[in-house]
Amino acid sequence: MKGLKQACLFIDSLFEKVALGSLIAMIIIVTLQVFTRKLFHFVLFWSEEVTLLLLCWFSFMGIAIGVREKLHLAIESFTANLPPAAINVLDKVVALGTMAFAVYLIKYGWDFTVLMSDSTLPATKLSNAWEYAIMPITGFMMIIYAFLQLIGIDTRRHHLEGGSD
C-alpha cells in the first residue's frame, strides 16, 4: 500500500510541476515577446503559438488540480446547512459526476488528438495534436482524484503528503 501511495504522490507531484512549469514558461515567453516588440520592433514568430499551447495545458491541468483540492462544484453556504449524511451523499454524487466528465475528456480528447495529428501549427510546425493531448491526461488524473474521493480518501495536497493512510 505504501508503494502505491508513493507512486501516486510521484505522479501527482510530476503533474503539478508540469503545470507550474508551463505557467512559468508562459510568463517568460510573454514578457520576452513584449520586450522584443517594444524595444526591438519585432516579435518572435513562435511566441504566440507556444504561449497558447502552454495556456491550454496549464488550464486543463488546473482543472484536475482543482478536483484534487476539491475546489469545484462546492457551494459551502448551501452544504453548511445540510446534515453530515446528506453532505456525504452529495460528495459521492459530485465525485461520480466528475468521473463522468473525466471519461468524456478522455474519449473526446483522444479523438481530437488523433484527428489533429496530421495537421501542424503554422509557425512552429508542431502537430496540432499537442493542443488536445492534455485532455485525456487531465481526464485520467480527474478519474484518479475523484475515485479516491469516492472511496473516502482526502486528496488535498496537504493530506496526501501528511502520511495518514
Rank of each mutant, 00 (worst) to 15 (best):
A95N: 02
V114W: 07
A123N: 14
E49S: 01
A129Y: 03
H158P: 08
K107A: 09
T113I: 01
G152I: 14
L71Q: 08
H41G: 08
M1G: 11
L55P: 03
D91A: 14
D118W: 10
Y132A: 02
T79E: 07
I151M: 08
P136W: 01
T138W: 10
L90H: 05
L4I: 15
V50S: 04
H159S: 06
T98F: 04
I29N: 00
F10W: 12
K125M: 10
A133H: 04
H41N: 15
Q33I: 04
V34C: 07
G163R: 00
Y108S: 06
H159L: 10
F10P: 13
H159P: 08
I11C: 07
M135E: 12
Y145N: 00
Q33R: 10
D165C: 06
W110T: 15
K2W: 07
V94P: 07
F78H: 00
H72W: 00
H41A: 15
Q6P: 04
L115N: 15
H158V: 14
R68L: 00
A85T: 11
H41Q: 14
W130L: 11
F112P: 14
K17G: 11
M26R: 06
D118S: 12
G162I: 02
I27C: 11
F60I: 05
C56D: 06
G152A: 03
P84R: 13
L44A: 13
F42E: 07
G139R: 00
L71D: 15
A95C: 05
D12E: 13
V94T: 07
L73Y: 12
V50T: 12
G21F: 05
L96R: 04
A85L: 13
G163D: 00
S117H: 07
K125V: 00
F10H: 06
F58N: 07
L20G: 15
G109T: 01
E161Y: 15
N88K: 14
F112G: 12
L105E: 10
M1L: 06
S164I: 13
A19C: 04
Q6F: 02
A7R: 11
G139Q: 03
A25M: 03
T79R: 00
W110M: 15
A146I: 01
K70Y: 04
L126T: 03
L9T: 05
Q33G: 07
S164W: 06
T120G: 06
L82G: 02
L20Q: 10
L52V: 11
T36H: 03
E49Y: 05
M116F: 10
H158T: 15
W46M: 09
H158Y: 15
G21M: 03
K70G: 10
S77L: 12
L23G: 09
S117C: 04
I65A: 05
C8H: 13
A80D: 11
V93G: 04
R68C: 03
A123W: 09
S59Y: 07
A85V: 13
K38D: 15
L23H: 12
K125A: 09
E131G: 12
A146W: 01
T124K: 15
A19M: 12
I29K: 03
A74L: 15
L115S: 11
V94E: 07
F147M: 06
A25F: 09
M1P: 09
F140N: 00
F147T: 04
A64K: 02
Y132D: 04
A95E: 01
K125Y: 06
A64G: 01
D118E: 13
S117W: 08
L82W: 00
L71R: 14
G152Q: 02
N88G: 06
S22C: 10
I144S: 02
A86D: 04
L20S: 14
Y145T: 01
